[in-house]
């Protein structure tokens, strides 16, 4: 498979009143053409920041990429000029945000907001762009697109707005679509519709998707590969099957154990005790060590390196070291009962 996007050792920091927050600390992953990758983790794990740094949409002056490269079709986006980025945003890589209620400009018609990108990137005339906007609205399943194209965002429901946002994101046939918690703010029934739509559109257009989420249910629905983030780092990556059926990192176990299951005998959901690390003074060793039930002394002082489990499966955990005691994942973390 052809590598479309390649992140190598990305570090992102924010300057705040209290000091420097190291939100992302050495993230590397690749995305192939037409693939869908899910980045999973709890709030503050750095997943949203990672996605915003790909788009170079970190808040000016406060947030910056400190280190590392983001290669997109051979070009390093981390060093690209703002003007070059304007050509890439929307045309090559586009983004869907979490809350459709706030991500559309309330004083601009839906049509104009879709047309903006088309006019900029594809040099369309007004009428061409409008025609395309109507087609896009039809594509994402909005009834009466000819009429609704001239309406304002507040005339749309939440689910409909997210469809519009998807239409905007896909308007210029981007190669990569970054979806930052696209369903979190929606009702459960609407969530399924939006996920179906995204999968359907991916089949039609062949766009690669980076799905940012904390919801493992969404991951199982849409993604082929998964990267689990914790404390600004990727702690485990693998295919969906590998992450769900053969997880290696205790944090992934915790995530899976805290997921509700219908067939489980124990009715209790397991929480991971403790809170995520303070990224202003990140721990020297494994970020998860302080909450990890299997923590060893080595974990506190030494950063575990990513270890290959299979050709597609990597985890960064000292338990994978041959000197470590053998530990089996807890019952609750087993999704299909397969061991």
């Amino acid at each position: 498979m052809e590598k479309l996007l390649e992140l190598d050792n990305i570090h992102v920091s924010f300057q705040t009143y209290g000091g420097e927050v190291k939100a992302v600390r050495g993230v590397s992953f690749t995305l192939d053409k037409g693939e869908s990758l899910a980045i999973v983790g709890e709030s503050g794990s750095g997943k949203s920041v990672t996605s915003k740094s790909i788009m170079r949409l970190l808040p000016n002056k406060i947030g910056s990429i400190k280190q590392g490269s983001i290669k997109f079709q051979g070009k390093d986006l981390a060093k690209a000029s703002e003007r070059d980025m304007e050509k890439i945003r929307g045309a090559e890589i586009s983004m869907i945000f979490q809350d459709p209620m706030t991500s559309l400009n309330p004083t601009m018609t839906i049509g104009k907001q879709i047309m903006e990108g088309l006019r900029k990137h594809q040099n369309m005339s007004k009428s061409e762009a409008k025609e395309r906007a109507v087609n896009l609205l039809k594509l994402v399943g909005i009834p009466n697109p000819e009429l609704r194209v001239d309406e304002y965002p507040h005339q749309f429901s939440g689910g409909m707005r997210q469809r519009v946002v998807i239409a905007i994101a896909l308007s210029c046939n981007p190669k990569v679509l970054i979806a930052d918690e696209p369903t979190t703010a929606l009702d459960v029934t609407i969530q399924a519709q939006i996920l179906d739509l995204m999968r359907d559109l991916q089949d039609k257009t062949g766009t690669a998707i980076i799905l940012i989420t904390h919801d493992l249910g969404v991951v199982a629905n849409l993604a082929q590969r998964v990267a689990v983030m914790y404390g600004g780092m990727i702690v485990e990556t693998g295919t969906v099957d590998e992450i769900f059926y053969k997880p290696k990192h205790p944090y992934t176990w915790g995530l899976l154990a805290s997921m509700p299951k219908l067939n489980a005998e124990s009715k209790e959901l397991l929480a991971i005790p403790g809170t995520p690390p303070d990224l202003m003074n990140p721990p020297k060793g494994c970020p998860f060590a302080a909450r990890c039930p299997y923590a060893m002394e080595v974990c506190l002082e030494n950063m575990p390196e990513a270890t290959d489990v299979s050709s597609s499966h990597k985890a960064a955990c000292w338990l994978l070291d041959e000197r470590a005691p053998k530990v089996e994942p807890p019952e609750e973390a087993l999704v299909g009962g397969a061991r």
Binding site: T275, Y294, A295, M296, E297, N302, R323, P325
Partner: peptide, 16 residues
């Protein structure tokens, strides 16, 4: 890294 580092660490669960 010496093997003795691979002993379970004494973590105070309250500390988390």
């Amino acid at each position: 890294l010496t093997p003795d580092l691979f002993r379970p660490a004494n973590l105070d669960s309250n500390k988390a």
